[in-house]
Design a protein around this nucleic acid. Structure first.
Lengths: 216, 216
DNA sequence: GGATGTGAAGTCGTTCACAGCT
DNA sequence: AGCTGTGAACGACTTCACATCC
């Protein structure tokens, strides 16, 4: 609503706390202290308390945090108290595996549409593999379908050369959140949010660490 | 070799500079200034020069950087002046799409082995789809094969509940670099390097930004 | 002249340490 | 007594600004 400049890292950590809390809630843990939770998430407990206090006072002094309440609070902060509807653009191998990736479902993210420049090429395979035949539509229907199905996040899994184009179409369709899986730098206008998942950047990081820090 | 505490972000940016330089090298651009390159990579030019100067003086005052030379230099810094041999553990949809993901090939990363707890279940599909039939081996051969094929990086794409186990096996096989694609926090001993690619963490970030910063 | 390389300044994020509740 | 909440100290990363060199 009105939280100023919260750092990216804080949000990432909230996400981690949240996933861990989900796990222990199932085991019926009622209360947890910042140091216990921090240890499990491999962060400093001061940090954890600070992260939470950007958004409110969720704990009880002398006691800790009620797991259920904290879950509700973080859920609200992160915007996970509702469902997010997503579309995948580009149904190659990666796009397909995202369609099949049902871990999203548990996490408030739902893929409600799939697009490709050549739906016929991929449609057989998709229907055969996935229980419910997800229809793969032609890219030229993104505008229309995005509105109809209230899509808010687009996952780009086209070939790299098509990524910017896919982003442009999503922007035109007013899809405000874009997650780019292709190894290309793309841009979106003000008011839109872009995040990238670059496999090779992470691998480069590993390569660097393996060649340098380790054999000291 | 002997570079002290270089920040993670510096390495990520080097990776970005590198990928962009590769592109313009093909277009036969000879020289580029820090401000031109920085603009393309969406960073501050002071930052770029600082990033590079952690590792040496690669530019020419009054001129800029020779693209070819800079590529060679960054390549050496990141450890991309050689091939990195990788294995995929867990051949579900995601693991399969990594096998098929040939962007790795262009980037010095090569998948040379694939493992699963049930190779027979997946082997037909893999051979049929990929040109060269990549053999999928049983997990119990990881030790042996990792040594034979000099595997240095393991990609974990098992079900989440198996991720830690997969990591343990890789560690036992002395595979020093581990890239975890499952949405689970895992740990590795000192001397090993772990990086995670958590789809949902990035989505949570989008969800947060979409619900908060935008509609101000 | 023009762009790099770099100390110094500034900003941002993390950790400390303790006051304040329960 | 115990654990949270938080100002203050610290450290790390980024940006500035200019001396330096081609």
């Amino acid at each position: 609503m009105k939280h100023p400049k919260i750092s990216e890292s804080t949000i990432r950590r909230l996400s981690r706390y949240y996933r861990y809390l989900e796990q222990i809630e199932e085991k019926e843990v009622r209360v947890i202290s910042s140091s216990q939770l921090a240890a499990k998430c491999l962060v400093n407990s001061n940090q954890l308390r600070k992260d939470l206090n950007f958004f409110g006072e969720f704990g009880t002094r002398g006691l800790g945090y009620h797991v259920k309440d904290l879950l509700t609070d973080i859920r609200r902060v992160l915007g996970l108290d509702r469902e997010w509807r997503m579309a995948v653009i580009g149904i190659g191998d990666l796009g397909f595996s995202l369609l099949a990736y049902n871990d999203f479902l548990k996490q408030n993210y739902k893929i409600v549409a799939a697009f490709d420049v050549d739906p016929l090429r991929v449609i057989g395979r998709v229907s055969e593999k996935l229980g419910k035949p997800v229809e793969v539509l032609h890219n030229n229907r993104i505008q229309e379908v995005a509105r109809e199905r209230k899509i808010e996040i687009g996952l780009i899994t086209t070939p790299p050369s098509e990524a910017q184009n896919a982003a442009d179409i999503l922007v035109e369709a007013k899809v405000k959140g874009i997650l780019n899986f292709t190894p290309t730098q793309i841009t979106v206008p003000e008011g839109y949010v872009l995040r990238n998942i670059f496999f090779t950047t992470v691998l480069d990081n590993l390569a660097y660490l393996l060649s340098n820090s380790l054999n000291k």
